[in-house]
Amino acid sequence: MFTQINCPNCQQPIAINVKRLVAGDSFSCKGCSAKISLAGESSNVVTKAVNSFEKVAAQAKH
């Protein structure tokens, strides 16, 4: 599951593997080398959202 957000520092797009983000990985900006990751306090919310997103996406394949 891939997505991208703009770097808050330099506005360059940063590609993010959402599942890896939830797992705690950080992603580097190619423009300014800043690293972004998910703050621990939001981990549960995003994990739930990713799970329900995957359910909806699985229904879409049928």
Binding site: P8, K35, I36, S37, L38, A39, E41, S42, A49, F53
Partner: peptide, 28 residues
């Protein structure tokens, strides 16, 4: 359902607020 939090106001109208998550940015 997932990305918004619904609040029902006193006049019975639904009000959706986006769910915000916290991200950490670190740089040298």
């Amino acid at each position: 359902d997932t990305c918004f939090a619904k609040e029902t106001t006193d006049d019975g109208k639904d009000h959706y607020q986006p769910v915000l998550i916290k991200m950490t940015l670190s740089r040298g």
